[in-house]
Every structure is written in C-alpha cells, then in structure tokens.
Write a protein that binds this DNA or RNA. Structure first.
Length: 374
RNA sequence: GCCAGGGUGGCCGAGCGGUUAGGCGGCGGGCUGCAGACCCGCUACACUGGGGUUCAAAUCCCUACCCUGGCUCCA
C-alpha cells in the first residue's frame, strides 16, 4: 500500500517496522465540547485506514489520547462551576456516543493526559538534565535550537511566523512550554503546575508503543506546531526519529474557511438528526482524505443518493459472480492501495451498482473497509 | 516564505494519454388563449502561457504566471 508521508511529501510504500503488526498513535480531541464534523472527518478517515490495514492482514495496535488538561477545559469548568474532571469526563462520554454512532472502531487503548502526569514530569526532568530544556521564570521551556531545530515536517516557518510569535520570557522565540508552574496545578516532584501541550503525546505514544511507531495520524492543522514539536522532543529523548509515517487529514471548511476560524461549528449529532450515519460517512469518504472538504448540504444529499443506489443494488446482488466481479474488486483494492483513495473506491462500487453486476463479495468488502453498512 | 489544491466552452462542472460528460444559459420547435412548468431538437470542437515526452496530451514531465485554503485555539 502507498501512503503519503507528510515528512517526505511523497507517497511511499508502507512497510511497518514489524512484519505483520502496525503501531499507530492518533491525536485525539481536547475534551471541552461536543465533537464537530471536523472531528468526524479525522476519525472516520482514520477508521477506514485502520479497517483497510486489517483487511490487508495486519494486526493493528491503535493508541489514542484524550487531552483532558487544557485551558479551555478549565475555562468551561469555571463557567459552569464544576470541576475540570467533570467537564472532561462528560465530553469523553459524548465523544464515544458520537463515534459509536458513526460506526468507528474502538482504539486498542484510550489514554488521558491526567494518567501520565508523572511520566511527563520524568521526561521534563530528563530534558532539563540533558540540556534540551531550561527554566525561565515560571516556565520550563524546550530548547528548539539545542535539539537541532524544526524541519521534520515543515520548512522555513521562521521566515513567516517570527512576527506573530511571543518572544519575551524565553531564550528563543520558538522555544515552547513543557511545564508551567502554578499554585493551582498538579502536584509533582518538580513543583505544582501544568504540563505543556506537546510532551503529552510523546509520552503516551512511547509508553504504549515503544520508541518507534509506524503511523502517527492527526488533522493537518496539527502539523505545526504540535507534531513538529513532538518530533523534536522525541528526538531529544531517544536520539532518533520516532514516527515512520506521518499522516494528516484535510480540514472541513465552512463557507470556505476553516471551521475553527468561522464563528460557528457544526456538531456531529446535529448532522445526525437529518442524515443517517452511513450517509455522513459516505459524504466524508467521497473526497480524498488529504484534501479539504467543504461542508455542503447539497453534497450530503448527493452522498445520500449514492448510498441508496449502492444499497439497492447490494440488496439485489446475489452470491454468484462473473468475470467482472473480480475486476471491480481488484479496482476497489487498488484505489485503496493508492494512499487510501476512497473517492475512487466509492466510484468503482457505484459503477458496479449502476451496471447491476452480480457479486455480493464487492459489497461485503465495501461495508467492511469503508465501514458503511448497507 | 513554506505546504496543499486548483486554473476546462457565456457560467458551473466531470474527464486525468487516443473514443471530445452532464447541468445552467442561449436558440429553434411542440404543447398552450398568452406565458410558465414540461417535452423534442440545436448550439459550445473548450482545456492559463511557454517548453518537452509520445505515433497520440486537457490528461504525463519541466517552467512561468494567476486563484483558493492552511501555517503556536485547533481534527
């Protein structure tokens, strides 16, 4: 299978570090609100990748986190007058409701930042001792330059971002926070405080999957700074690259803009009031995962029609196959092999349906791999 | 600056090596008291510029230009 690796900006043949096992870490949500259709897209697309790897015979170990320490969570807790854990527990619960509705396979294990605080602190200490981090005022920063600088996933950010960056209070503008001392924070051997954003994923990934993982998945908005910083921390810790294939899905656009930048966002359950879950999946998968996807009811309706068409044909299709069946299955699989081209794969099945060809097997593969129940 | 995706007939929009979707509009006709809905037919030999590969390029490669989106809240 070919996979587009963000690091090399190229499609590469997928070869996991162990022959039949794939180790994957997925960046999960920060749990301060309900999941929106951007989350739906990211996790549906990943779900299909996972299903396809399973279809290919791999054993998939999938670790996914919940970021349950975050300013937005604290803010919401304050506003509602409840504890932050009450907020995060609530939205973790809601997360599972939405994901189950979308027929997304459960991860091998879900981790929470609060469960890994001690490990994060250990790593911060280790980085301090090895000279990759320093304390400046009330914060401990990661020293970007000492670890070789950015460049794993992005190039020349400096040239563009240098103006907008916070400079005071640290040695170099691009240094980022590993630990923030705070009286109200969590108790730890280095003192009360909160962990910074980037270290958590490194810790949760390494604790569960070891020093090298095969695939790290997330929305493309996480490339910089989150994943870039993660890769630097990991390199500083282990001395080498910790992710073989970086994969990033495109964003969902609302009126041409990234959803987080427009004033409103659309929640998954809001859409599910009007469209069945398989239709929502169909809509998402009708576009290649790396492209941006504009929200449009018209496209959702088109997806609905497609879904019904395929469903109707599947109901009529018998077990018997002819020479064409195998051909179409082959085409479906080779579309999936090409960096998970679900857009193409769906078209193959659509054409098969239109021609009323026989062979239930193709529909079974469609259901299994795309997770769309007919 | 970097990354991604694009630039197709009046407009929207497929196609992604050879057979030139489809829709809207426009034109003609049918139906109709007139118009509209509707039906039939006609109309667009179009692919940003410049190189190259090929027997053959809108489709592949290089290059230039232009447009859109993203780039420390973020999936």
């Amino acid at each position: 299978m070919l996979i587009f690796n963000t690091r090399t900006q190229n499609k590469e043949e997928f070869i996991p570090s162990e022959p039949s096992k794939v180790k994957i870490y997925v960046c999960g949500p920060t749990v301060y609100d309900l999941c929106h259709i951007g989350h739906a897209r990211s996790y549906v697309c990943f779900d299909v990748l996972k299903r396809y790897l399973i279809e290919l015979g791999y054993r998939v170990v999938h670790i996914q986190n919940f970021t349950d320490i975050d300013d937005k969570i604290f803010e919401r807790a304050r506003r509602e007058g409840v504890s932050s854990s009450e907020i995060s527990e609530r939205y973790i619960n809601e997360y599972f409701k939405d994901m189950d509705a979308l027929n997304i396979m459960r991860a091998s294990k879900y981790t929470r930042v609060t469960e890994y605080l001690q490990k994060i602190v250990e790593i911060v200490e280790k980085l301090l001792n090895s000279g990759y981090a320093y304390r400046y005022g009330n914060e401990i920063y990661f020293d970007v330059e000492a670890s070789g600088g950015f460049g794993e996933l992005i190039k020349n950010v400096e040239e563009f971002i240098v103006d907008s960056i916070k400079v005071e209070g640290k040695r170099k503008p691009f240094d980022f926070v590993l630990w923030k001392f705070d009286e109200n924070g969590f108790n730890s051997k280095i003192g009360r405080g909160f962990p910074g954003w980037h270290a958590e994923c490194v810790v949760m990934s390494m604790e569960n999957l070891g020093n090298e993982i095969d695939i790290h998945w997330g929305g493309k908005d996480l490339i910089y700074p989150h994943h870039e910083c993660e890769s630097l921390i990991a390199k500083a810790l282990v001395g080498k690259r910790f992710v073989k294939y970086w994969m990033h899905n495109g964003l969902v656009l609302l009126e041409g803009r990234k959803m987080s930048k427009s004033s409103s966002k659309i929640y998954i359950r809001e859409i599910l009031k009007y469209y069945p879950a398989p239709v929502l999946r169909m809509w998402i998968l009708s576009k290649h995962y790396r492209r941006d996807l504009s929200f449009s009811e018209e496209d959702l309706n088109t997806a609905w029609k497609k879904y019904e068409k395929i469903k109707r044909a599947a109901k009529k299709a018998g077990d018997e196959e002819n020479s064409k069946t195998k051909e179409y299955i082959q085409e479906f699989l080779s579309a999936m092999n090409d960096d998970m081209n679900t857009e193409k794969a769906i078209e193959v099945v659509e054409e098969f349906s239109e021609k009323n060809l026989h062979g239930l097997r193709l529909y079974k593969i469609f259901e299994r791999v795309l997770g769309i129940e007919l």
